[in-house]
Amino acid sequence: MDATGLEERAASLTTRSIKTSSKRAALELAVSCMDLTTLEGADTAGKVHSLCAKALRPDPTNPEIPPVAAVCVYPTLVPTAVEALEGTPVKVASVAGSFPAGLGPLEARLEEIRWATAAGADEIDIVLNRSAFLSGHYSLAFDEIAASKEVAGEAHLKVILEVGELGSYDQIRKASMLATAAGGDFIKTSTGKIASAASFPTALCMSEAIRDIAERTGRQVGLKLAGGIRTAKQAWHYLVIVAETLGADWLTPRWFRLGASSLLNDVLMQHAKLSTGRYQRPENFTVV
């Protein structure tokens, strides 16, 4: 990978000015592609319930805002989310496989995936075994993903590369190729648990990997960007990067996701600013 070229290109894609109706469309698209996430040790059934209510109707005062794509929780909270979202278009995603490190025994990791899918999760977010990947045991990392895909069955498998731990764009591209070849339906940037998370160049790097896979094999792989995405502006910069690299085919909840917790309220604030012409205060939007 040409790191300088990649960073320049990513930077140039973030200078676009997006206004009025385009901005409104971008904000609504960002909401409909969002995985509304809570992954805290302090999560409770009550918090997941309110998160699901927010997922279905992000802004109760504005019916124009679509529901988000999915709610992302820890496995033991999947039954709560499934119950709250039954019969709605919002999917339930669960992290599994010893999230966020992925260093539990393989059997335990696979069992966690089985458990989450049995509980009704539509999507499973696992982590790449960075310990194996970084020490050159690619086949081990590959086999683990393949095994996870097998036990996940019908559920979509998203593989978190944790780009902040991979060290270079070459490694990110290599990991993207490995995860998709092993059967991952989506590749995802980060767990959100380390400081270094999704960035514009890494998003571009992964988008290019996905584009090249599609060109060579005809197979379409999804992209999920997560970690550190907090403002509406960041969200539409990512949309531009994906649109310019992968095209409009990817800009649907089926192939593109933004994983976030605090992003949604900023998007709602910007949307309300567009509609009313007045700058909003954060307190006017519901928590989680």
Binding site: G277, R278, Y279, Q280, R281, P282, N284
Partner: peptide, 8 residues
């Protein structure tokens, strides 16, 4: 005007 209309 933007200051007066600002919600915060």
């Amino acid at each position: 005007p933007p200051l007066a209309g600002h919600g915060d």
